[in-house]
Write a protein that binds this DNA or RNA. Structure first.
Lengths: 221, 221, 221, 221
DNA sequence: AATGAATGAGAATTCATTCAT
DNA sequence: AATGAATGAATTCTCATTCAT
């Protein structure tokens, strides 16, 4: 089917992927498959057979790449956290230095088309719902939560400072904003026809405009 | 099969509870036990053996009172919804007619000490996380969501009208408020030491004060 | 098939066994079945399905009575050790006090018709062969070994003392006797037609007669 | 595919070992590795992955050199039998013709430092424990057993004859001696600190001295 | 109304074996 | 000659459900 290639090393990234690449690729496929299955069948209903079947590979493939189901799930969560992180870095780098712009950018991250899809939100929810019972998940969650809360709080503090918004507490605002974003993601997942990503951002901006009128204006419906 | 009893309430403290009373009591114990087990082990980790064990009764007891595990879970969700409903009715009845007071009362419901406990929030999360995959849960959720969104939206609309807050969209505000409440409940579950029920309400009131300055004032920290 | 009995409590040990008895009975059947399967298929070839199937019960029965395969094996070993112990006590009680008689009785124990059957020896061998690798087995073995070696050594010491057999070391004789018994059990297992239990005892007595001519006489072939 | 090579032995120490030599070397390494793994993890716990890993080679290596696991095990057993045979030949050649000397030499074989190591005894035990269930092992065992029993029996017969030991049966003595050796090997495996190879030989000699006082003298402790 | 032994379908896991490179 | 990713059958284990008592 394929022409004979004299040396596999000739064009390392072209024709034939190296063994390590193949392995990494399969691993990634399994992880993506896991997200899909969780989204479709829920956390409790997810079986390794489902995950394997969706990749078109054999039953045993999961335990070949992961020591246990637990580890597959941990890797999946790590994959999602990593993806989030990457979008975050990219978007924030472009956001400039002004606190209002950065706060607005924060919303862009959470409602980013790459991250804010039904199946991914579903997977996040599933992990978080189990996170109280499973220490490994909980640790991941606490790390992420702490990190992004600090980020939001710092921006709010700068905004309050610069804009002279006396009487506002950065921690309270950040807490509320983060909570609202989380809740809206849930709504997007459950009722994508009722709440679009853009609509969700408008909701957040409306509340921000109430608190920081000099920096945000309520968007028209 | 059993003689007709005019009222189960007829002799509330009498010697011997009737068969029906015993049965109902056991059912209720099983449901509360289910909530506890979900809170402790997560949805995926909950087994009927755990539920039975926690009641101190025998393994087979669950299938004696419920046709299947699915039905026990459905009954548990119904129980929680009913409890929510009762708190809601009670609190709102006392809230008077003024829209601002009623909106404030809404927060009291969600952060009510009866409802807002770690284990109950955990159970709610678990059900909702599975709700996309399980039609029975999803129906329950959609019904509740719709109902309380309508409630909040109507109050916001009245508030906007009365207070002459031009440029505000009741649906957007209601959506944001509900989302924020949901997100805060999550935080209370994960970090009860960092976010108390009172603190969560303060967060919501801060944002409401931003939008409706004539009706709410930002609480001091 | 059985006449109706008015009360199960009427004759506790007769008609209907109690639940606890049924459970213990099933457990014992599983253990005996395990011995048989090990004897038939070897240790490596023994599966829980085989064990269950041989009892005529369902696949899941083993894990209902034992937490794991490992535990079933441990219980089986304990059962065999216990059986050995009981035969030992019974036979030695009847043996009187004279050291020669007691030493002869020792042989009766090891070559006792209850213990010295192909399938049981096979099971013992299987456990002992794995005992170096599995700590739980090893502990059992070391305990048994130590106990019966001490017993044999004490008897040899008394015999040497009483009979004035200078130049003999009780530990050496006991060590050799125990080893010979073990080796002969192996032979019985492998070639029951070539080495009977009686023949095995004759072998031991021949060697004992060599060392203790005043107390033992070489049996005729 | 490869050019015909007149003799693999042609240049024994030359630069580059021939393919056949490499192959034979790998085969041997795999067999030795098998013995080690059996000694360490037991028969039931031995996997091809373990065997391969211990050679430092890749997972698939075993199936490249052996058609199946069964064949690797058979080859391992054959290897051990062959090694035993070689030691036997060498030691017995030097033993002279006198039956007592040859009988003493027999002990030297079984307790020879090359053969009598914990890991090898362990491997022998493992094979023998499975031998009742596996025809291939059983055949090997029966062949070896028969051969060395005949050897011992013949020596005992000559000894009885020459020494005029009336009343002794060569078969019985040989049976007892072989059994004792086997049992002592087991002890050496389990408690090398309690029973050394030399001590084991002393035990055997003590018993032989009892039966054949003209030919053996009980060793001092 | 409750018990708990037993069932059996289904899940995770292990591992010998295959095969393209 | 060797590699190691992939396969899939077999095995252990879990657990909802059944049922005789």
């Amino acid at each position: 089917m394929s022409r004979k290639v004299s040396s596999a090393m000739a064009e390392p990234t072209a024709r034939r992927p190296s063994r390590a690449q193949v392995k990494a690729g399969t691993r990634a496929r399994l992880i993506r498959s896991t997200i899909d299955v969780i989204a479709e069948k829920g956390f409790a209903g997810t079986t390794l057979a489902d995950v394997a079947h969706r990749t078109g590979m054999s039953r045993g493939i999961v335990n070949f790449h992961f020591a246990s189901k637990e580890q597959l799930l941990a890797a999946t969560l790590a994959y999602m956290a990593d993806e989030y992180q990457q979008v975050f870095e990219r978007v924030m780098r472009r956001a400039g230095r002004a606190p209002a712009a950065r706060l607005a950018a924060l919303l862009k991250v959470d409602f980013h088309p790459t991250l804010c899809t039904g199946r991914k939100i579903m997977a996040w929810r599933a992990f978080w719902a189990e996170s109280r019972a499973r220490p490994a998940f909980r640790r991941q969650r606490d790390t992420l939560d702490a990190r992004y809360f600090r980020e939001a709080e710092a921006l709010c503090a700068r905004l309050i400072d610069h804009g002279d918004y006396t009487g506002l507490d950065a921690a309270i605002v950040a807490r509320g904003l983060n909570a609202m974003i989380d809740g809206l993601l849930d709504e997007i997942m459950m009722h994508p026809e009722a709440v679009s990503r853009a609509a969700a951002r408008r909701v957040c901006l409306t509340f921000l405009a109430g608190l920081f009128p000099k920096d945000f204006t309520a968007p028209g419906r």
